[in-house]
Amino acid sequence: MLPSSPRDRDSWDDDVSREIARAAPARSSSGFYAGAPEKDPVTVRPIEDEDEDHDEEIPVAPVRRQLSVAIAGFSALLGAGLILGAQTSGPDARLPYAIVLFGVQLLYILAFTMAVRPPAAGTVAGVCVVAAAAADRLAVTSEPAALLPLVYVLAAAYAAALVGQTIRAADRARLRDSLGGTFLVVLGVVSFALPIVLTRKPVGTQALLVCLTAVGVSLLVAHLTDAVWPKPRIAAQVPRGAAGIIAGAMLGTLAAAGLGSVLVLPFTPAKGAVLGLVVAVIAGLVDLAVNYSEAGRSMAGEAPTLWVARHMQGPLGAFALSLPATYALTVLYLA
């Protein structure tokens, strides 16, 4: 029953407030109400980087000095053979040069078929041997000397290689992934017939001398430098140094400029340097790409390529893929 007078109401409110304050739980010094169970403080643990436990030290591929010297020697011998064959190839003496080039083409087929490992590798190799013989014959006998017959051989050989890869179901399953590799094999084989075509053009023999010298010097210097000072390493898994590749390109360009200064017109030191720079850079990149592809196979756990084919692949690919650039520069830049 509520009190009627105002004074009684105020006294009653004070009594009620005291009762409520007495009944309410007091707060402790920790900030919790007295009587309430205090929770254990949460311990914050630093999050450890789980990747640190899974990081593995990348092994550094060793540089074998004797092997680098051997590859440099093979590059020099290959370049010297191609240059001497071009210089001694006359109107009635192109067949011996074609035979030499056919031997180089067989080495290229062996090295790149074993390295690229396309589906139906035996069929691809057989097609490439036929394409090499046909390209060399057309380069010697076609009138006038032109690039178009070799383009026809390239297209026909590539189509035949692809058809041969569709016969078996296991080969068809890998066909899409092998298109680029198969084309690389066929292109290099047909490209080795280009020196014969160039020797039949007015300044083609001199252009071959300049460009093949630049490629040979570039590869020779690059691998000899790797044998002495393979630094800075481009990648831990690739046994090559950037110093050798850069020095090779520079000295290859210098050698081409020197030849351009002693050859007759239209050659000049500047034009020789342009030709040498283009082919030397192409050769160095192709040679380096071969090392990268071999390192990729090793990291993937695949069986390595046969050691003879593996070490010949870089120089052979460098010379083969620099020949189309040599032909283009001769026809478009020197003409």
Results as ranks from 00 to 15, higher is better:
A80S: 15
Y97E: 12
R45H: 13
E57N: 11
L67K: 04
A139Y: 00
V100D: 00
D49I: 12
I83D: 00
A76N: 03
V163L: 14
P59Y: 01
V100S: 00
V163W: 10
P59T: 09
V153G: 01
V140I: 15
T113V: 15
T141Q: 11
V151P: 11
L150D: 08
I58N: 08
P59M: 04
A86Q: 00
F102G: 02
L106S: 01
A157C: 13
R117A: 12
G85A: 04
A160K: 10
A146Q: 08
L148E: 10
E143G: 00
A134F: 09
C128I: 08
S68F: 03
G81V: 06
D136S: 06
A61F: 07
D40I: 08
L110D: 14
T43A: 12
I71P: 01
A98G: 11
A115L: 14
A157D: 05
S89Q: 06
Y152P: 00
G122Q: 05
L78H: 03
R64K: 10
S68E: 11
D55Y: 14
V163Q: 04
D55P: 01
Y152D: 02
Y97V: 12
P118D: 01
D49T: 11
K39W: 13
T88M: 12
Y152H: 09
L78N: 02
V69W: 05
P96R: 00
L162A: 04
D136F: 01
L154K: 02
D51R: 12
P62D: 10
V100A: 04
L110M: 09
A139H: 05
L77Q: 06
P118N: 05
D136M: 14
A93F: 14
L95H: 09
I47P: 08
V130K: 05
L110V: 04
T88V: 13
E52G: 08
L84C: 13
T88N: 12
V127Y: 06
V100T: 02
A145I: 09
P41Q: 07
A93E: 12
A160L: 15
V130N: 01
Y108R: 02
Y97N: 09
L84E: 07
L82W: 03
L110F: 13
C128V: 10
L67W: 12
I83E: 02
